[in-house]
Amino acid sequence: MTMSEETEQPLNLDIPDHLEYSDEHVWVDRSGELAILGITEYAADQLGELVFVDLPEPGSRVEAGDEIVELESSKAVQPMISPVAGVIKYVNRDVSDDPSVINGDPYGEGWILKVELDDDEPDLLTAEEYAKVIR
């Protein structure tokens, strides 16, 4: 996801410490058996109110760097770039039915995918490193 460098950076964004992040504004929770992915609060704020989310099919294979989800708002259409490789096991149909869930709770009910990761270690940022990317 590419975000405009010209926009004023809000400093009060939530960046949970227990998650890992990509430069493309995707968060990853690897604490369970499956990795959970979603977009960050920063990305949701930059996109504005989401109106459409095009999800991939469960069982699809994804490689790091792939455009895996299309996010459409009144402002823009942006792809969600996967920071991990693996097989998509679950998609959050709730965000497809009501994309505003992502805007309202990007780190909770607004999760987008659950992926069974390959063994390779994804190149992800800590919360502190990600905060430097967006500030």
Score class of each variant (00 low, 15 high):
62 V>A: 12
22 S>W: 00
57 E>P: 04
28 V>A: 10
135 R>L: 10
96 S>Y: 06
8 E>H: 10
12 N>C: 05
92 N>M: 08
118 D>W: 11
79 P>A: 14
47 L>V: 07
58 P>G: 11
96 S>D: 11
57 E>H: 13
103 N>S: 12
33 E>Q: 13
38 G>N: 07
50 L>A: 07
26 V>K: 00
83 P>F: 10
8 E>D: 11
114 K>W: 01
104 G>L: 15
74 S>V: 14
32 G>S: 15
22 S>D: 04
19 L>Q: 00
71 L>I: 12
54 D>R: 12
134 I>D: 02
114 K>H: 08
120 D>L: 07
88 I>D: 05
17 D>P: 02
57 E>Y: 11
100 S>N: 04
96 S>L: 08
43 A>D: 00
93 R>F: 01
98 D>A: 13
56 P>K: 02
44 A>Q: 07
94 D>H: 11
95 V>N: 02
133 V>T: 07
106 P>A: 06
39 I>W: 05
115 V>I: 15
73 S>P: 08
75 K>I: 09
86 G>E: 05
26 V>Y: 00
135 R>K: 10
113 L>R: 00
35 A>I: 05
11 L>H: 12
50 L>H: 05
28 V>Q: 04
123 D>H: 10
41 E>D: 14
6 E>M: 07
57 E>L: 15
53 V>D: 01
68 I>G: 09
56 P>M: 02
69 V>H: 08
80 M>A: 13
96 S>A: 15
10 P>M: 09
94 D>I: 07
120 D>P: 02
44 A>D: 03
32 G>A: 15
27 W>Q: 02
126 T>I: 04
37 L>Y: 06
99 P>S: 13
130 Y>H: 10
107 Y>S: 09
20 E>I: 01
7 T>S: 13
54 D>H: 12
28 V>M: 08
21 Y>F: 13
112 I>V: 14
65 G>R: 10
18 H>R: 14
123 D>M: 04
117 L>C: 15
88 I>W: 04
131 A>G: 12
121 E>S: 14
80 M>G: 06
17 D>C: 00
7 T>C: 02
24 E>K: 14
132 K>M: 12
123 D>G: 00
116 E>Y: 11
128 E>C: 08
34 L>C: 03
132 K>W: 10
2 T>N: 09
122 P>G: 09
133 V>H: 03
10 P>L: 07
129 E>V: 13
91 V>P: 00
83 P>T: 09
102 I>R: 02
105 D>P: 07
3 M>G: 00
26 V>C: 10
7 T>D: 09
82 S>N: 11
133 V>C: 11
67 E>I: 01
96 S>N: 08
92 N>A: 08
77 V>Q: 03
109 E>F: 05
99 P>G: 12
15 I>R: 01
91 V>Q: 03
69 V>A: 04
4 S>D: 11
85 A>M: 03
22 S>K: 02
66 D>M: 09
116 E>H: 14
16 P>V: 01
1 M>C: 04
75 K>T: 08
133 V>G: 01
111 W>P: 00
67 E>G: 12
92 N>V: 03
49 E>Q: 15
77 V>Y: 02
33 E>L: 10
32 G>L: 11
65 G>K: 05
75 K>G: 06
115 V>Q: 06
69 V>Q: 03
122 P>T: 11
84 V>S: 03
130 Y>R: 06
19 L>Y: 03
131 A>W: 01
19 L>G: 00
86 G>D: 07
